[in-house]
Computed example of a mutant assay.
Amino acid sequence: MATRTRRPERREEPLSRQRIVEAAIALLDTAGEGALTFRALAERLATGPGAIYWHVTGKDELLNAATDAVIATMTADTTSTAGTAAATPQEAIRTLALGVFDAIDAHPWIGTQLARAPSQSPLLRVFEHLGRHIQTLGVPHPAQFTAASALLNYILGVGGQNAANARGHHPHTNRTELLNTTATAWADLDPDEYPFTRNVADQLRDHDDRTEFLAGLDLILTGITTLQNPTDPTPP
């Protein structure tokens, strides 16, 4: 009589807060904030909703944890990159700002979460790093809060709008078609009422979002560097 070979049972990875957060990020990326429920998350993790509640108390905490995980990884990566390249404060700010911009582009739900909870750690991570670079630039203390806030608001505003534009596109309309259509509409506006908008219509048609984002950032940085203490060396 042949003996029956027993197949070893597959060992599932233990449920942890990290696994829950990673699954939440994946769900948010594919389906958006509205699809993030504990029932949907439990199905993805092959567990029950009750097991998730042992690690996360509710949706708000989960959203904050997911946002913090993405931002923490991004700030660690950009800080490491800036440090190894011996970057100037301006270059470090550009690297950090572009990191947030790209994070929001890859995870559109993050923009809303950062704006929704200004006192939470994800936003504070970004604000703290911006502030340190502002200090290194030699900006006087009374102007440091204003400078860091202006940078943060620009980064979140442009990054969030870029993500909103991407989400608002018709699924069968690509970016080039949309810009061409909009630019053509701008060019056909009344020349007396919209002289400037008509004049920049071609720039809208051909612009790159990341390039324009960095150009706007440089305008702000140029203004901030004029606030340096007179005794501080002029940055390159």
Rank of each mutant, 00 (worst) to 15 (best):
R132C: 03
P236E: 12
P140F: 09
V139F: 07
T78I: 01
I52F: 11
N174P: 02
L156T: 15
L217Q: 03
L204W: 03
L28R: 04
G34L: 06
N180K: 00
D105A: 12
I224M: 04
T47Y: 05
A147F: 14
T226G: 02
E193L: 08
P8L: 15
D68V: 05
A72V: 07
T176Q: 02
E61V: 08
L227A: 13
A85N: 12
I25A: 06
G32C: 02
G138I: 02
D190V: 02
T47S: 09
E13T: 15
A150D: 15
A183Y: 02
A31M: 01
A76Q: 06
I224Q: 01
A66C: 07
L214R: 13
G48R: 15
R17M: 14
A103F: 01
P236M: 06
H55I: 09
T184I: 07
S149R: 12
G223S: 12
L63V: 08
H107D: 03
L114K: 07
D68N: 07
A92S: 07
G138T: 04
I134Q: 00
L189Q: 12
D208A: 13
V200Y: 14
R116F: 06
L96Q: 04
Q228G: 12
A46Y: 07
A86R: 05
T88W: 10
H129E: 14
Q161L: 14
E9N: 08
D202M: 07
E12P: 15
W186V: 03
G159T: 05
Q113C: 10
E212K: 11
T84L: 13
E128V: 13
M1R: 13
L114T: 04
Q113R: 07
G32A: 03
T84A: 15
V21Y: 13
V70K: 03
F196S: 13
W109H: 01
A40P: 00
E91I: 11
I224S: 01
L96V: 08
A40R: 01
I155R: 11
R210Y: 10
I110A: 04
Q18L: 14
P108I: 00
T176N: 00
R6C: 06
D208G: 13
D29K: 05
A166R: 01
L214E: 04
L156H: 15
A24I: 03
D60W: 10
F145M: 14
T181F: 09
T73M: 10
G48L: 09
G131D: 03
R11I: 10
G168S: 00
D105Q: 04
G83V: 13
I52T: 13
D68L: 09
D206R: 10
